[in-house]
Design a protein around this nucleic acid. Structure first.
Lengths: 246, 246
DNA sequence: ATATTATTGTGTCTTATTGACACAAAGTTT
DNA sequence: AAACTTTGTGTCAATAAGACACAATAATAT
């Protein structure tokens, strides 16, 4: 077993909600636990010399193979009842060499982090605890381990709120994309339809897009323009916020 | 000594940033550590059957005498270097019966919570670790213990952001107040002047205030109207947000 | 080839919101 | 009584947001 609890902070764990966007659907990266048969968020523990964010990056890499992901903490989940029925313990019981089992039976407080990643860049790989690691669209998610359904719900709410005061999309879209594609991302996160013309006007007013002369071809209609994010302005908008407010 | 680490989660602490408003200044509640002579945020630890929020309410009561405060978590502080120089350890060393000293020398990850309270309702009282507990206006705060300056800074930023999408003030103002008083609160939090007429128009548009017929007298000028918060609408606005965005 | 179909690009009008700005009224001080 | 301070209040211009329609393009069907 690869965990060495001696080097880990007790009582603290972290869970990552990794959002991707594909086929006009918002997806979350989940792992399927080998023995308990439950789906869960990829998570982990914190080493004695790590910050939460560093630990989350490392854990995400271990669980799913993903690296260079910018993870942002959004909330601590600390309800005393949240881990009473931790099915991960069952997975551990079935493994040989479970001398650390009691460590995992502790009560854990978990820090929730989320990230947005470009779907196509991800090649998820399961680790020793899980037999599958894959994207699930939001409405396909069934009952997850422990309070992970709640964690996903709160992450989505955070994402929706973020949309109102910060640009989003750089990490969720391919390098080049069309306006309708970007609009579908917004519509999916918000869960509602937006007017095509007003969306374009608003997003262009932020000056975070470069219009490319080229067009995408192959569909049965007029070819849409391609856009890319203007990194400089995108960063500025991230820092300054978009508008609204006092 | 009143701490019983046996019953506490290891490695996890919490710190409370309590904002108050008085004499046109935004204030923060601080405690002064007996032996190390450092000022610090009132904080505490988490018992095995508590959520973070419950623990924070209890700790705040123990440290300052404050009760019935709604505390909201805003961030986890987990930099590995944050507690290397924890001066609280010095305070503990000077106390008799420090059999738990090593427990406090651990590395801690701290959950930051903040709250807004009505200044006049507070009667701060120091506890066994501190000899003073009092309000400090933001520009009077010197160097605090550990990373507490950073925690205050991030709490203030959270508060400023919250101002843009939620009503604020119910917990910071007395039951009845004038429009200029409320405006000063907003100006203080934001750190900038606002136009008197535009402020009034905007805040009234939220429908969260009741105008009272009475007036306040005694100042050398025209008597301003009194207002109170309309609790029903205030709650609604808290839930739905104020506007702006998609 | 021609028509059909689906989807895109684009602009205007109306309404709501924001920002800038000035004077009269009231109560206190001199 | 005059001066002073701070309050209450409204309008105009600029900007942002919401509703809405038609022409252009590229594949597909006939």
């Amino acid at each position: 077993m690869s965990f060495k609890p001696d080097n880990l902070l007790e009582h603290i764990s972290l869970d990552c909600v990794i959002f991707g966007f594909h086929a006009n659907q918002l997806k979350v990266l989940l792992v399927h636990m080998k023995y308990s048969g439950k789906w869960a968020l990829p998570g982990g523990f914190i080493q004695k010399n790590e910050s939460i964010e560093t630990a989350a990056s490392r854990a995400l890499k271990e669980r799913t193979g993903l690296s260079d992901i910018f993870l942002k903490q959004f909330r601590v989940f600390s309800d005393p009842g949240r881990s009473i029925l931790n099915p991960a313990v069952k997975d551990l019981e079935e493994q040989e060499g479970n001398e650390h089992l009691n460590w995992f039976k502790q009560r854990f407080i978990s820090v929730g982090l989320y990230a947005l990643v470009e779907f196509s860049k991800v090649d998820p790989k399961p680790d020793i605890f899980s037999d599958v690691c894959e994207w699930k669209s939001l409405d396909e998610i069934g009952e997850l381990m422990m309070d992970h359904n709640l964690i996903v719900k709160k992450a989505l709410k955070t994402l929706q709120a973020q949309l109102s005061y910060q640009p989003i999309g750089f990490n969720l879209m391919p390098a080049q994309f069309t306006m309708p594609e970007l609009q579908k991302l917004y519509e999916t996160i918000l869960g509602k339809k937006l007017d095509r013309r007003n969306f374009q006007r608003k997003i262009l007013s932020y000056k975070i897009l470069n219009k490319l002369g080229e067009r995408k071809e192959g569909q049965a209609n007029k070819a849409p323009f391609l856009y890319e994010f203007n990194l400089g302005n995108y960063q500025k908008a991230l820092e300054n916020g978009l508008s609204g407010g006092w």
